[in-house]
């Protein structure tokens, strides 16, 4: 097997995730897209751990744990937004406009 077949797969997943983050309106769907991005990164870590030792695996595990925490907090935020706005459309959150 080649290194690149995994690395390219991960690159594709990453771009699809980025596309989702940019395009999706629903907060929950944006979080799902972020999961795609994180998993793409994890594949990279694991691939390179076959070169440089188990550190990559360790960090993949760390990423998984952090991703779990991120989903927890992220969904709590989405829930809060829903409660305040009765909608999870990120489009409607434009209070950042100066």
């Amino acid at each position: 097997m080649f290194l690149n077949q995994f690395l390219l797969l991960s690159a594709i997943l990453f771009t699809i995730g980025v596309y989702g983050v940019i395009v999706r309106k629903n907060g929950v769907l944006v979080l799902m897209s972020i999961e795609l991005v994180l998993n793409a990164v994890n594949i990279n870590l694991i691939v390179f751990s076959t070169y440089w030792g188990v550190a990559g695996q360790v960090f993949a595990l760390f990423t998984i744990a952090i991703a779990a925490a991120e989903v927890g907090v992220g969904l709590a935020i989405v829930l809060l937004i829903y409660r305040n706005q009765r909608s999870v459309d990120i489009d409607e959150l434009d209070e950042m406009k100066g």
């Binding site: 983050v21 940019i22 395009v23 990120i90 489009d91 959150l93 434009d94 209070e95 950042m96």
Partner: peptide, 14 residues
């Protein structure tokens, strides 16, 4: 570019 919409910022960022 000054819409206040996060996703547009994300698009620009990427």
């Amino acid at each position: 570019t000054q819409t206040g919409r996060i996703q547009q910022y994300a698009a620009l960022f990427f």
